[in-house]
């Protein structure tokens, strides 16, 4: 093989940086002349194949990949002025705020024309995947039982057997998880059932999680029977757990998150960033997206996403949420 790619995982608990970085990985290509720094919410292992295929086409570019939470990304860029070229995040609201506040560079190329209108804002934010929020169930716990397909059915189920599901439900802790907050706020916009469900989960002593992967893990082991608002893509990726879990896209509505990428204004490697963006977008949108079910509700990109980031609004929402969860 002409190119060999070394991926060295450096676990890092940094004192030097105020923003905490979970993991920084360098994908070095032989004979590279420039380095591209990416900060992302996607797990390194999940994103590695994308970087590998990028480096096959562009062996002259090293990739420095930093995995972080969405709020860490925000802190790094807005408060610390950290040097990154591309920000990739599932937190559409924070990505929108970055672009709105002038941290994103507009980008135009043949690949950006592939992105559907709803998948881009200001030619700065570009969606490259659509990932629905799902309900994940423990297969064993639901053996021989009717599987709830909507939130209303789930509420009915929980009400009918409160003893069975007490402390066996999980969902995002929206106070700490950016994506959890995004899903919850979008739920609250869409339907009143969200608040009824939240209240019910509060009564049943819901377990709160930081991340989808932890919820999937706990559902598979049977620690909890139901996980609400789990990233379907993460659940589906766990082939090893397919026997143990059931993934449900709620039939009343399923909120679809767009995973987005943007080139940062302060980037010193605009060319390399452009090449990476082209690679990412053309891989994502080469084929027209399949027309999905009626129940899928895509979160629209745009200034509306700034609303729940408002300090007072967030305060109010969290207050309401907390009073529903902690009874």
């Amino acid at each position: 093989m002409r190119y060999f790619i070394t991926a060295c995982l450096v676990l890092w608990t940094s004192m030097a940086h105020a923003y905490e970085i979970e993991a920084q990985t360098e994908f070095n290509a032989e004979g590279a002349t420039s380095t591209l720094s990416i900060i992302s919410t996607t797990d390194t292992a999940v994103f590695a194949p994308v970087i590998a295929s990028f480096q096959v086409a562009n062996p002259q570019i090293n990739v420095n990949y930093t995995a972080a939470s969405s709020s860490q990304i925000n802190t790094a860029i807005v408060e610390e002025n950290a040097q990154f070229d591309i920000a990739i995040s599932s937190a559409m609201d924070l990505q929108t705020k970055l672009a709105n506040d002038g941290y994103a560079e507009a980008f135009d190329s043949s690949s950006t024309t592939l992105v559907p209108d709803w998948g881009t804002w200001r030619n700065s934010i570009f969606a490259f995947s659509q990932e629905p929020a799902t309900i994940v169930l423990n297969r064993a716990a639901f053996k021989g039982q009717k599987i709830p397909q909507t939130r209303a059915e789930l509420i009915t189920l929980l009400r009918s057997q409160p003893k069975k599901y007490e402390r066996r439900i999980g969902t995002y802790d929206v106070r700490t998880s950016g994506l959890g907050y995004l899903f919850a706020t979008q739920d609250s916009r869409t339907s009143e059932t969200f608040w009824r469900l939240t209240e019910l989960m509060g009564q049943l002593k819901v377990k709160l999680y930081c991340c989808s992967s932890d919820m999937i893990e706990d559902v598979s082991t049977g620690q909890i029977a139901i996980a609400y608002n789990v990233l379907g893509s993460y659940a589906a990726a766990r082939d090893d757990l397919a026997e143990k879990i059931i993934i449900i896209e709620p039939q009343d509505y399923a909120t679809v998150m767009l995973r987005t990428a943007l080139i940062l204004k302060d980037s010193k490697a605009q060319r390399a960033a452009g090449l990476f963006m082209d690679h990412l977008l053309s891989e994502a949108w080469n084929e027209q997206p399949i027309n999905q079910g009626q129940n899928l509700r895509r979160i629209p990109l745009g200034p509306g996403l700034l609303v729940f980031l408002d300090r007072l609004k967030r305060q109010q929402f969290l207050q309401e949420w907390s009073s529903a969860i902690f009874q």
Partner: peptide, 15 residues
């Protein structure tokens, strides 16, 4: 003083 900014207030500008 509490402000509960309506989603549409900013979303309409995006339209």
């Amino acid at each position: 003083v509490v402000a509960d900014i309506p989603y549409a207030a900013l979303a309409m500008l995006g339209n």
